[in-house]
Design a protein around this nucleic acid. Structure first.
Lengths: 338, 338
DNA sequence: CTGTTAGCGCCTTCAA
DNA sequence: TTGAAGGCGCTAACAG
């Protein structure tokens, strides 16, 4: 193990005090020009790198933010992360990325890692299980800013980045209605997630507007586990009075539903229409292509990061509960219109 | 800002030495049972958390590994990362994730971040631009183990995790030949990447075995930028003697090629067959579904992480250049067979 | 079994 | 403009 070069080494070599070297390196005070360049040159020559552990110990400044996401398998979160990292890198910050795997315990563990790493701020989308927020209020108590996106926590006063779920869902369902489908099922998310409730409400509002009677039987909350879509869709199709359309809470769900419906020999969209949510890359390429709502993933990440840095720099009050709602677009494809 | 609890605080409170508290917390020596539980209880009550920056400063142990990947947009790397994190978490290690965005400079910057964070090991898949490896040999000089996967560096003696690209490509092209296609184009990667060369060689070997004349005109190395597939495919199809099949270096390329071929009104696979590489989730769902080679992404990540920890623990010699070749499977779908 | 001492590398007074 | 000294929180060595 080669020992890294320290300030002490440079000071010794140049026969000056460590303080002076430190001053040159941090550029905070004026130092004799000659020694200044001498230090700088030697530092470069010896490949001096500041020990961030030592400096953090003193300054508590880590130049690091954290992001916790439920999973990596859909394209949604990796893209959001890309947006976050772009902004963070520009601000000279590193990003610690953690996956909660949709498990509350893992999320708590992730939060502890973030805490231990003294992140200066945290961006998070909750797991579908999370109903207790003690692991996050800790951050608030330490005045470490948090920004939520997608799966936000309504009980915590913090900036949030979302899309207009209610409105988007409304438009999606309205589109189904206008194509002549009137028995529209909804495969929704767990109702502890605000996002599920907002999408459900958009669905309900569209039905209401067009005077379509509500049927609780065809509104199915599920646990977002793809392997369970099978059961729910078959159940719907086996009802005495089955639906002829489905508004699914997200694209993976819609995509899976379509496979099941096709396997039963039904024609899409004639016999059964499907709408998803998010515009996953698959949705444009599959057969039939999926009508869905596009979300600006990268933009969501960028926005969340910008809010976080505003909080960190004090450009936004610590108590801000600002909600940034980004717009979506209904993308009509062959799963609803031939 | 609330000050975190330190060992000193606990020692003062209990009126014992800091050393004793430290001993209890690290559990390395025997300590009087009474004081032991007293310390433990108080620590829990005060929510004591070790300051990793202080401890790293002394021990140089960070319990952190790093992983650098070219991008996050295809499903490949996120899945590999999931595999890495699973093993790392089990070993009590944190993972720092970085994206190089296929840019050499970014990769160098990422490597510096890893160095600054004193990762105990690094897992990396190179950018398509990387031809200089100074940013990686630094790790070797500091005896920080590296494991390569996917886009490996052949000039550095380090463990590598790959799939049998040569053989897989051979089988893919053989499959095309056996379905009656004899004019098979290849859209390959930049030839500084070993992976491109291996896949190209598999392609060539298959042609040779079946005595199909080689035509350099229809072997096109490209820069892996999807937006350029368009030009290459159109060029191929506009040749006086155009190919009737394509073996693409990866799935995104194959998927894009299929869109272009369809747009030209050609029938797949009758007029033109396509094979990809990786079994992206899209490939099964698109129309026509894509014949491709499946890779065990999560397994690749797990294997890389296991090798890395073997290196870290000294279970594998520092100089090991072991190459783990994981097996793939040719998945035949409708882009080659109706 | 316990305590004292001396750092890790950096930053921040304070005094010169 | 420069230097000495002290401390961030933890660990390691050495005594007792």
């Amino acid at each position: 193990m080669i020992k890294p070069v320290t300030i002490k080494d440079i000071a010794k070599e140049l026969n000056i005090s460590k303080t002076t070297v430190s001053r040159v390196l941090s550029g905070v005070t004026t130092v004799n020009e000659q020694t200044r360049i001498a230090v700088l040159e030697l530092a470069k020559k010896l490949e001096y790198k500041k020990n961030i552990f030592a400096s953090t110990l003193v300054t508590h400044k880590t130049n690091t933010i954290g992001i916790i996401v439920p999973e990596f398998f859909s394209s949604y979160f990796p893209k959001v992360i890309t947006g976050v990292q772009a902004i963070a890198t520009k601000a000279g910050y590193n990003t610690i990325i953690a996956q909660s795997n949709e498990k509350y315990e893992t999320e708590v563990a992730n939060a502890e890692v973030m805490m231990a790493n003294q992140v200066e701020g945290l961006i998070i989308s909750l797991t579908k299980e999370t109903t207790n927020f003690d692991h996050l209020t800790v951050f608030q108590r330490k005045e470490i800013p948090i920004v939520f996106f997608n799966r936000v926590c309504e009980d915590i006063q913090a900036p949030k980045v979302v899309v207009d779920d209610y409105d988007s869902s409304f438009r999606a369902v309205e589109h189904l209605i206008l194509t002549g489908k009137t028995r529209i099922a909804h495969l929704g998310g767990p109702d502890n997630l605000a996002i599920s409730r907002r999408r459900l409400n958009g669905y309900l509002a569209a039905l209401r507007k067009y005077h379509i009677p509500l049927d609780e039987q065809i509104i199915i909350p599920y646990d977002l586990r793809i392997e369970n879509v099978h059961t729910h869709v078959n159940h719907l199709l086996d009802l005495p009075n089955p639906p002829n359309a489905l508004f699914a809470i997200n694209d993976p769900t819609a995509i899976e539903a379509i496979q099941i419906i096709k396997a039963r020999g039904m024609k899409i969209p004639e016999d059964f229409a499907v709408v998803g949510f998010s515009n996953d890359p698959i949705s444009a390429l599959m057969e039939p292509s999926l009508t869905t709502i596009s979300q600006p993933m990268v933009k969501i990440g960028e926005t969340a990061a910008e809010l976080l840095f505003n909080l960190i720099n004090g450009h936004l009050p610590k108590t801000s509960g600002i909600i940034k709602t980004l717009t979506t677009e209904l993308i009509i494809r062959h799963s609803t219109v031939r």
